[in-house]
Computed example of a mutant assay.
Amino acid sequence: MTVYITNAKRTPVGVKDGIFSTIEAAHLAAPVIKTLADCSAVPPDEVILGNVTGPGGNIARLSALLAGLPQSVPGFTVDRQCSSGLEAIRLGAALVASGEAQHVIAGGCESSSTSLRPEKAVFSPQSIGDPEMGIAAEWLAEREEISRKDQDDYAVLSYRRFAESIAAARFTHEIVPVGGCSVDEAALKKRPIERMAPRAKSAFQPGGTVTALNASAFNDAACAVFMTSVEAPGMKVIASAASGADPNFPAASPVPAIEKLLMKTGLSVSDIDVWEINEAFAVKIIYTARKLGIPFEKINPDGGGLALGHPYGASGAMLVLRLFYGMQQRNERFGIAAVGSAGGIGVAMLFERV
């Protein structure tokens, strides 16, 4: 059965201890779910949310109840680290495609501000290696000879594209206001990134190449999409793939997932009009682009996580949202969303504009 995405919404993205400093993850997700449900003639059969640093429990079910959905609508929560939001959409699509559900709301939410988990979880046995994400990004940069300038130049590009998107009001129709806030916190700050990037200090090791400006921040946000088996304008889910990789180089993990996805569909890199790849680190995008031969012009054309932010559980869903609106605005056919996660796991999904 064919799966269609007919709507996508998100909250503004807040910085840790910023505009959403006291709003818990479920209370960020609830307005998004309510908005998507209100736009549909029927309630969803399931709510699926990704979440990484929340308080435990079942945030998807809690969020659905807070949104006022009928108590008959269940919910379940996914943790695949940074891939969680994309994985939630992938699972929702599988339910619809199999006929187990007709309508699904899926996405993710994160509140770094209210998280009770300040320490890093264990993602891999020490016998294999389980580095901090920033250190792992440094290792990939060193192994692949990706310089500090390469990373800074890409960060400047991401910030510039984000600023252009704000100026063109490209995000206006996708944002659900929360707590009186309707604008991304990053958009409220004037940052002369071209001057700041070369002056930024190494963030994770002395003399390193990864800084606070070519790596993402800690953020708060929620994002979800409405999926259905009923044909409608928007996007069609074509295929998806997940793949494991070396846990010591998690920033490299989108590549095997994308390769697996392209092999499954018989498409080549040149067939894809636009790529949304999570910008946890600039080095991740540079590595993926070089390895697969993707031109930067086709990657994150509205800016990405370096500028906007990286609310872990929601980030994968935000990639799908960007494709949903961006491919319509630019009249593109095929788009891929891809994320690399802690522990060395990549997830990728292919969509076609309808």
Rank of each mutant, 00 (worst) to 15 (best):
A221T: 01
V230K: 13
E259P: 10
M263Q: 13
M227E: 07
A251S: 15
I238M: 10
V225E: 07
S229R: 13
K236L: 09
V237W: 15
S240T: 14
P250D: 13
A221Y: 03
S229Y: 01
V225Q: 08
P256A: 03
A217I: 14
T228S: 15
A217V: 09
D246K: 01
A217G: 14
L261R: 13
N219L: 10
F249H: 09
D220F: 11
A241G: 05
P233C: 02
G234S: 12
A257K: 12
A242K: 00
L267A: 12
E259M: 14
C223F: 00
A242P: 00
T265Q: 05
K236V: 11
A242Y: 01
S253N: 08
V255W: 12
A217S: 15
P250W: 14
V255L: 08
I258Q: 11
K260W: 04
M227C: 08
P254R: 15
E231A: 15
M263F: 11
N248T: 10
I238F: 00
L267T: 10
A251I: 00
S229F: 01
K264F: 03
V255K: 12
K260G: 02
A222K: 00
S243K: 15
K260T: 13
P247Y: 11
A239T: 06
A242M: 12
A251W: 01
T265I: 02
T228E: 11
